[in-house]
Design a binder for these strands. Structure first.
Length: 254
DNA sequence: ATGGTCGGTATCCGA
């Protein structure tokens, strides 16, 4: 089972690249973040023409997550939102059961700056995510995939000196991610990653050329499942109208 | 040296 997670940074702006992703990799599950679309404008028809059904959790201009599966695959048990999340009106957490696996598409708040009120909310969101993940793992096979907006270690940064004191790298954020990883899930890339590890590069044109990136998009897999392979397809960070994130591909065995 | 670009019912703000 191939599970892809991708912060597409607007599903409507990214439709050509999303269709390319579906054609190229023919994934069994796609977790999307930052779809940035109102529910009524979600491109269900175009996706259906490409052979996919979408469950979307949409909140208009900002945020938005979705899970895509092939049209002949059953998607059930949908849960919209995360119990205990700050600002529940922001669409950042979606659970869907696909082929017996509880799939979560998550978009963790950015946090803006460590001294900003939104930063504390980011920490609260990560706490709620860890608590919910523990419940899900207890009930069966679980995959939590998405834009975590935290680089777990300095190895996940092109230049730790440049990011010290900013969001994504503070001990407070990293402690929360460490707790999340203690809930019966493991980081698929750390276990079976191949090739480049960064998943996000700034929109500064030189950032991609110079590989000045971070690994902030993670696929967390419960111990019910084997991780065969994990890779970041950085080709989607280049070419025509790319997102600022690259998709992460994870091959799982039951 | 604190830049740059991209997205959105948008001529600023968030990332």
């Amino acid at each position: 089972m191939l599970v892809v997670t991708w912060n597409c940074n607007s599903i409507r702006a990214r439709m050509p690249r999303l269709l390319e992703l579906l054609r190229t990799h023919q994934p069994d599950v796609v977790c999307l973040q930052e779809t940035k679309v109102a529910a009524g404008l979600f491109p269900h028809l175009e996706l259906a023409m490409a052979g996919y059904t979408a469950i979307d959790h949409s909140s208009g201009t900002w945020n938005g997550v979705a899970v895509l599966v092939p049209i002949d695959t059953d998607a059930a048990g949908c849960v919209f939102g995360l119990e205990g999340q700050p600002r529940p009106e922001e669409a950042r957490w979606l659970e869907v059961v696909v082929r017996g696996v509880r799939i979560v598409s998550v978009y963790v708040p950015n946090g803006r700056r460590p001294d900003h009120p939104r930063f504390a909310e980011k920490l609260d969101f990560l706490d709620a995510a860890a608590a919910r993940t523990a419940v899900l793992v207890e009930s069966g096979p679980t995959v939590v995939a998405g834009d975590i907006n935290v680089a777990p270690t300095d190895d996940d940064l092109w230049n730790p000196r440049r990011t010290t004191g900013r969001t994504h790298v503070t001990p407070e954020e990293r402690d929360r991610v460490a707790v999340l990883l203690e809930q019966g899930v493991r980081d698929a890339w750390l276990q079976a990653g191949e090739g480049g590890r960064y998943t996000w590069w700034s929109n500064h044109p030189a950032a991609v050329e110079r590989d000045q990136g971070m690994r902030i998009d993670l696929t967390l897999v419960s111990d019910h499942l084997d991780v065969r392979r994990c890779l970041v397809d950085a080709s989607f960070r280049r070419g025509e109208r790319p997102s600022d994130h690259a998709p992460v591909l994870t091959w799982l065995d039951p």
